[in-house]
Simulated assay, not measured.
Amino acid sequence: MARRRCGGRPLVRSPHTTHGSAMTTRRTLTISITAEQDALVRACLHSGRYASASEVVRAALRLLSREEADAVSPLRSEANTEPKAGPRA
């Protein structure tokens, strides 16, 4: 297990670590991001709105989830309004 310091706090990384209660189980995940994405994460942290990079990523994933749901919703509505083929004569 590697230990590094992040923002003055020790950071422990393990691929099998889970956090939280039974309702919100969290898993540690190591990801690679571009320099631009790193700058965005750091700017979010510097703004004080987020306390950790994990919070920034979770917020981004919530937005992605909403965006995906919004993109799929019209397709589902369209599929439900198409006339169904009746029996052929």
Rank of each mutant, 00 (worst) to 15 (best):
S52F: 05
E82I: 12
T17G: 06
V72L: 15
A53E: 13
S77G: 08
N80P: 00
A35D: 14
T25S: 10
A69F: 01
V12R: 15
A35C: 02
D70M: 10
E68G: 02
S52R: 12
E82K: 10
L63Q: 07
A60E: 01
L64S: 01
L75S: 02
N80L: 08
D38F: 04
D70K: 11
S47T: 06
S21A: 11
V41A: 09
R42N: 10
I33A: 05
P10Y: 00
E55V: 00
R88T: 15
S47F: 06
R27E: 12
S52K: 07
R5M: 09
D70S: 12
P87A: 11
L63C: 04
A60Y: 06
R88K: 09
S52H: 11
A35T: 11
L75N: 07
R27G: 07
A53T: 12
P83Q: 04
E68M: 09
E67N: 06
E36Q: 13
S77C: 05
A43Q: 13
C44R: 13
R76S: 02
V57P: 02
S65K: 03
R26V: 05
N80Y: 00
P87Q: 09
V72Q: 14
A85Q: 11
R4F: 14
T18F: 07
I31M: 11
P74H: 03
M23R: 14
P10S: 02
R88I: 12
L40W: 04
I31F: 10
L61Q: 13
L61A: 15
A39S: 10
R4K: 15
V57E: 05
R13H: 04
D38N: 07
E36L: 07
R66A: 02
R3S: 04
C44K: 13
A53C: 06
V72D: 09
E78N: 11
R62E: 09
L11I: 01
A60S: 11
R9D: 13
L45E: 02
A22T: 14
R5G: 01
G8L: 03
S47M: 03
M1Q: 10
T30L: 12
R26E: 13
H46A: 15
T25V: 14
L11F: 12
A85Y: 03
S32T: 15
S14N: 14
H46G: 04
C44E: 10
S65C: 12
I31V: 15
A79F: 08
G86W: 05
E55S: 12
M23N: 09
T34L: 01
H16E: 10
V57A: 15
E55Y: 00
A79V: 05
V56H: 07
A85N: 06
R49M: 02
A71V: 00
P15V: 00
R58I: 00
V56M: 06
T28I: 06
G7A: 03
E36N: 07
E67M: 05
T28Y: 02
R3A: 07
L29N: 03
G86D: 09
T28M: 11
G20W: 04
M1S: 13
T24M: 05
V41H: 00
G86V: 08
A2H: 05
Y50S: 02
L40V: 07
T28R: 14
R5K: 04
R42A: 13
R42F: 01
G20S: 12
C44N: 08
M1K: 10
L11D: 10
G7I: 00
L45A: 03
